[in-house]
Nucleic acid binder design. Structure first.
Lengths: 208, 208
DNA sequence: GCCGGTATGCGTACAACTGCCTACGCGCCG
DNA sequence: CGGCGCGTAGGCAGTTGTACGCATACCGGC
């Protein structure tokens, strides 16, 4: 379970910018990966890779904002720091409304960028820790059979076995068996824990 | 249970701006309340009042950003739309990072403001509906005695009565009584519902 | 002195969990 | 094709957990 090194993805069509940012980041011990276009990033990026994204707004082909939208659609959680030379307020507002971590207008001080990159990396680490736990629970719940899922749903609604048996049109004994399987597969030690697990998953769906 | 009319609070030190915004909002049937300063707004505003806030960034005395910070500290949820004549990107970014609903740079089209005000009002209505339910639950849970609270806590951890009795150093029968009171006062129809209620409250604390 | 919170015992009734055994249909593999 | 694993379904029985009524008791505040 070794953690991959956090990587700062730098997406900018200007080769000089990519290089200077790479050197800047390297000077504070941060690994970076320069990409020349949004498409190139989408090919390279794997959601399991911790890090953050430093993204130029204006680029040929897919723009920075379009890339951000695409990442949102894919459910990516990588923090995005925009940089731009010719930005305006509506552009910044839109980026922030779409969940950008930050939006920097050039020129900015080196230290300013480093500061925000480090905060973005910290946030990514926190997000990942939470997602990891959810992922474990999700896998367990996905190992349930369809019937077990139905029972799980009714369980977390607080329905007694007798009612479940009636609603599913099976005997109470059968419900008890499914119920026991649900508890076993989910790893929940009690109904209370099970409800917590399920609510957690529901929240992820709601916010994602 | 009559709903108060949603009000658009307009906070700007420029009397002319307040007036023109009031008229603009009135023209689309929106009630507004003009205030000349952040302090004035803080005196007037009651969290129970539905609506949104249209706020000038730059004002004598407390600035718009400072007012926003103050509202955040007080846990206010009213959506804030900033307007500014002399804004820059860092200012807009900071406002958005602090949870602003929108940030408009003058000049803007009338329709643009109306549009965003209406979205802000819609968001406020949604937020309020959720908060209302939480508030009802909170009140119920707060009516619990200290001992009942302890039992509630153990219940939502999935502990059986026998274990609770042991941990609390009391008889099982006593735990049963407290447990019954918790279910009665909370209004939960089942342990599952009770866990949901408690988790909801925990989430509110975590995000607030 | 009464009320509310806390604590306890006894007994009954219902709900939930568990073990042990049987059965059918489906898909996979030797 | 027959055996095997698995999801589904069911019966019987026994233990544990939960709900509740009835009765009793101490303490602190109004």
């Amino acid at each position: 379970m070794q953690e991959p090194t956090p990587t700062v993805f730098v997406v900018d069509d200007d080769n000089a910018v990519r290089n200077s940012l790479r050197l800047l980041l390297k000077s504070v011990g941060l690994a970076s990966q320069p990409l020349g276009s949004a498409a190139e990033f989408l090919e390279t990026y794997r959601p399991s890779q911790p890090g953050c994204l430093v993204l130029d707004v204006r680029m040929p082909g897919m723009s920075g904002l379009e890339l951000q939208r695409e990442l949102n659609l894919r459910g990516a959680t990588i923090p995005v720091i925009f940089i731009t030379g010719h930005g305006d307020i509506p552009m910044a507002v839109e980026a922030m409304q779409q969940g950008a971590f930050d939006f920097l207008a050039k020129p900015f001080r080196d230290q300013e960028l480093i500061d925000r990159v480090q905060r973005a990396l910290a946030k990514d680490a926190t997000t990942r820790a939470a997602l990891k736990e959810r992922e474990r629970i999700r896998e367990r719940l996905e190992s349930l059979t369809p019937r077990e899922r139905e029972v799980l749903s009714l369980m977390t609604q607080g329905k007694p076995n007798k009612i479940m048996a009636h609603e599913l049109g099976v005997s109470q004994r059968t419900v008890e068996i499914h119920r026991a399987r649900v508890m076993e597969k989910s790893g929940a030690g009690s109904l209370a824990q099970l409800v917590r697990m399920v609510m957690d998953q529901e929240l992820e769906k709601a916010s994602g």
